[in-house]
Amino acid sequence: MIAVLLAGGCAALPKAEKVKAFGAAVDSSAGILSDALSTNRVIAVRTSQERQAVAYIQGGRVRLDEADVDLGAIISAPEQVAMLDALQAYGKALELAADQGVIDELEKASVRLGEAAGDMVVAASPVASPVAGPALKVAGRLLGFSLGNAYAAEITSVIRARDPAVQKVTSLLVNDLEGIVSLIDIQVLNFDIKRQESLIAVRADRRVDRLALYKEHMVARADLDTIKVKQAALSNFKTILEKMAATHHALATNQVDTAKLIADFVALSSDMRDVLKAVNASTKR
């Protein structure tokens, strides 16, 4: 019976490189979304700074704090940040488990993900089924089965057990981020307008030479580019999260098109990361 379980279980185990690639993409994309979500507060503060700067340049009252109209646009989203952080930790742990066989961190991240999904009680070491999971782990070690496959069985059991949590968390985030993204779109537009007003106010002083104007323009452009690239990343939240959920489910159920789904998800995550790197590099020149 044990031999049959081992043979059947091993046939259903995803390859380590697939799990590693998927985990890295989850880590990267969830981290990018979490960082982009903080853009809401950044834009509010920067818009207020520009508003006060223009007033100062034009001889108005000096203020060194944020205007109420800008502070009122700041969103508190601790639950959404916690869910994204849990997904990021889970992805990082999947990558580490697949690459180095480190299971403990995966189990901890798995528990955290379950809690983020709202599960009241989360098992520290989930298994794929009440019979096959323990049989794979115990028999694999007692019979001298390869350590790699024993670890793979444990990783697979976690993926299968946590698939409902991944589906729930990604679905909640898709619903919750819709309104936040719409607000950030409006904020970016307002910041763009305020940044332009600053440039116009500086240019109005004829004592400012062309080189200074050029430098001011490039700084303003860098400011806006940095914010807009995060806005663009966050605007892709639905595609990112839906691909993440579909790929995880494919891994959990050993679907035939898993490799393609992983490749598509990894490509999307890589594209976002590369764009962010390029913009960050250009603003540091």
Rank of each mutant, 00 (worst) to 15 (best):
L199E: 10
G140N: 00
V158Q: 05
V158C: 04
I184K: 04
N149F: 08
V174Q: 14
L183N: 15
R160T: 12
R210D: 13
Q167K: 10
K137C: 04
S171T: 05
R162N: 15
T156W: 00
P164V: 03
L189W: 01
L189C: 00
A152M: 10
A232H: 02
R195F: 00
D205F: 04
L147F: 08
Q187A: 05
S171Y: 01
Q167G: 02
I227S: 14
V166T: 12
D223G: 09
V208Y: 06
L177K: 06
A204R: 13
R162E: 14
L199W: 04
E197D: 15
I159P: 00
V202D: 00
L172Q: 15
R141P: 01
D163I: 02
L224Y: 13
R210M: 08
A152D: 11
L189A: 10
P164C: 04
L142V: 08
A165M: 02
T170W: 03
F145Y: 06
N190I: 07
D209W: 03
A201I: 03
D225T: 14
F191E: 15
I180S: 07
I193S: 04
L147N: 08
N149W: 08
V169R: 13
R141A: 05
L189E: 11
G179D: 14
I180C: 06
L147M: 10
E197F: 10
A165R: 02
